[in-house]
Structures are given as structure tokens and as C-alpha cells.
Amino acid sequence: MKKYIYWLLPLLWMGVIFYSSAQPYEEQNIKPFLGNLLNLSFLEPYLDWVSFTYHHSEVSTEVLGVDGLIEFFVRKGAHFGVYFILLLLFYLALKKTCRRTMWLLLALSYMMTITYAVTDEFHQGFTANRTPYAGDVVIDGIGAGFAICIVLLLHWKTKSGGIAK
């Protein structure tokens, strides 16, 4: 029964994600922090070439300013990182509670992670000044995919004797 405590880790992490998704954009906006605490204007010449469209909006220093551009990448990096961690927590819980192949555990972990990412985006549709976007699920999936790569790399290193057991 003690081994099922590992399921608390992904459940708690999912709670953190849910809480974050329930906050309106204004409560998560880090542009005032960036603008008041740090003067990042020196980065503008290095970032002025960045320009692309994301969710029907232009992402560039011209439109968002340096602070807004950095905030954009911090927010998208958070998507990547949060779901990277969630996959690892699902994998750990499954590994500790199920006797299946590593490949099946990774596939299940990925499916659970993506399922939660989709439901999280749906949940954002009910939050003030937040919109669900499939592109964010893609970023979440890339983060989860990188976590799979780390698990495989560690597994390979352990099996090949690169890491002491």
C-alpha cells in the first residue's frame, strides 16, 4: 500500500497546474516585475529580429516590447517544463506500482500527460482573460517528449555502465 504514495506526486503537481490555470492572466503577468526590477532594454538590438505569429498574434519586440517578448518565452517555457515534470512523475508512479515494460510505462505516462494538458487547456476556457489553445498542448507534448528522452538516456547510461548503479 505504501507504494501508492507515489501517485500523490503527479496528483499534487496536477493540482499546481490546475491552480495556475485558474488564475487570470493579470495575476500571472510578469511584465511589471521585469520592467520595474530589471531594465532589459539593452536586449532590444539582439531580439529585434524575432518575429512570428502565435495564436493569431504577432510575437515581436515591436509589438510586445522586450519585457513582453521575454514574458512570452517564460510562459511557453513554463508549459514545456511543467509537463516535462508531470511526465516524469507519472512515470515514477507507474514504475513503482506496475510491473510492465519501460516502453509501456512511458507510453502510458505520455498519454496521461497529454490528456491532462488537453483538459487543462479546456479548463483555461473558463478562466477570465485566458484562452485555450492547441498550440500550448503541442508545447506541453514536446516537454513530455523531452522527459521521455531523459528517461531513455538514463536507462541506457545505467544499462551500459555509464552510471554507477
Rank of each mutant, 00 (worst) to 15 (best):
Y25A: 04
G162E: 15
T101D: 11
I150P: 00
D48K: 15
I30Y: 02
D136A: 03
T119R: 00
E27P: 00
N29F: 06
W7G: 12
V118F: 15
H56W: 01
P45A: 14
D120G: 15
K31W: 02
E121T: 12
L106C: 10
A93H: 13
L11F: 11
V16P: 10
F18E: 03
S160M: 14
H79M: 04
L152D: 03
T131H: 02
T61S: 02
F73I: 03
K96T: 12
K95G: 12
V137G: 07
V63H: 13
K2V: 10
L34Q: 07
S41A: 14
V137R: 02
T127A: 00
I85P: 09
V118H: 06
V59S: 01
I5M: 01
P132W: 14
Y133N: 01
V66Q: 10
N129S: 13
V82E: 00
T115Y: 12
Q23G: 11
S41E: 11
V118R: 03
S41Y: 09
L86P: 08
G141P: 15
T97A: 11
T61A: 01
L8T: 04
I150T: 14
T127H: 00
P24S: 10
Y133M: 02
M102E: 08
I139L: 07
I5T: 13
H56I: 00
R99H: 12
I30R: 00
F146S: 08
P32Q: 05
V63D: 11
L64W: 01
L153H: 07
Y4S: 14
K3V: 04
H79G: 07
G143S: 10
G68L: 08
T131Y: 01
Y116T: 13
T131M: 01
E62S: 10
A117H: 05
T113E: 02
T113Y: 08
D140Y: 12
E44K: 12
T131I: 01
H56Q: 05
W49D: 09
L40D: 04
G162K: 07
N36W: 02
Y133H: 08
W49M: 11
Y25L: 05
R130M: 01
L89K: 11
G15W: 15
V50P: 08
F122D: 03
L87W: 13
G145M: 02
M112W: 07
S57K: 07
I114Q: 14
